[in-house]
Design a protein around this nucleic acid. Structure first.
Lengths: 125, 125, 125, 125
DNA sequence: GTGGTCTAGACCACC
DNA sequence: GTGGTCTAGACCACA
């Protein structure tokens, strides 16, 4: 995983799980890596992973069996979608729409930018 | 001006000028408020305003006449648009498009969300 | 490090890093002193160091790992040379050449002055 | 006269006189513009001109006849050369030589840069 | 009056 | 521990 500097690392870790739960790579009951393991794999301080897990646990995305590990919760999929969707529409979109108006970018323009985005993505594969 | 907590104040001050330059409320040659003046008006420390002005000067949006004050630079409009546009397409859009794919949101869905956004905006007026 | 009064301290700190990157005393990946550490060592306020670091980061000379510290960036050498060279040829040389013409100093004269300079340097060692 | 922002305006005004005295456009006994006149012509605060004149008077480059005006002093040429030369060799050159060493620029390189400089100058005429 | 630099010290988020 | 932002207040050069 490559971290960018615009968001806290622990947030990026949490998002990684949210995304993979939504795309159902992780499903109810799956055990996820231990804090220590993941920290080593990511080259990151265990506290940072811990913080991501604490966040996910708080949101009912994962749960903890003491002494055993962390597991995907029953409502993980539903909750993950809800979190992501709310964040998207309430936190991100207003700013985006605002900027679009200031710059005079229309939804049609956005469509073109989206196509470019997809093209670039495929090229980098 | 109301500050939100998600971004540093000095960034929000700089953005205020960028936005108003793009909408041509400020044009080439206009003098902007002195550091002290604006600081008092915003209820903020002069250093904080200074930081915003230093950023804008570095980006060729404003320039300084010694002992007199800050003025909108000749290429302010061009540069402001460039900064805002790059910020938008390079920093914000990729994340947005990513989230849209994960959540299965299409450009058509976005259009609807945009209409809602506009409606809410008008209601709050 | 001894500061002179002709330039702001934060500029002199930044130049110290530029020079040492160019002479390859600092290379890609090296961690530099933390803001606080360097501030104490130089007997200077952390804000002043911070300002130098912010400048260097903006110019892609150093980068930050969150919560860990600042490191020499990959293109630090290239960028540092470019900055220094541009500063030299665009800002300093024109004035120098102008003064030389007014005073009737030739490049040959300069060569002699350079030799004196080197001699004095060695005597002071 | 176009001012640049790297030096105080009053210094640039003083330098204008020094240069023109050295090139003997102004000679002993010439009356120079009054403070007010020059201030208006330059679009500058009279205090700023006053400061330049005070500096020049202090260095025995000009003198004042009360109620009449400022005049070029007898030893203006000699003094102007001395000031300019000292400043050049003591203040400017050491820094230049230093930078040259850091960047690995030789006197031969400088010769080429000087030729470019002259070429550009002629093109702009 | 203008900006520019600096200090001292606080508080916060993050690792 | 790390950086980042902000305040309060000082001092200075310059116009």
């Amino acid at each position: 995983m490559n971290f960018n500097n615009r968001k806290p690392i622990y947030v990026q870790i949490a998002e990684y799980f949210l995304d993979n739960i939504i795309s159902e790579k992780y499903i109810f009951g799956d055990r996820i890596m231990s804090v220590r393991e993941l920290a080593i794999q990511l080259g990151v301080n265990p506290n940072t992973v811990m913080r991501a897990y604490a966040y996910l646990q708080d949101k009912d995305i994962i749960f903890n069996k003491r002494g055993i590990g962390y597991f995907i919760a029953e409502n993980a999929l539903k909750n993950a979608i809800e979190i992501k969707y709310n964040e998207f529409t309430k936190e991100e979109l207003p700013g985006i729409f605002n900027t679009m108006e200031i710059l005079g970018i229309t939804i049609e323009d956005l469509k073109k930018l989206y196509k470019n985005h997809k093209t670039n993505q495929n090229e980098n594969k």
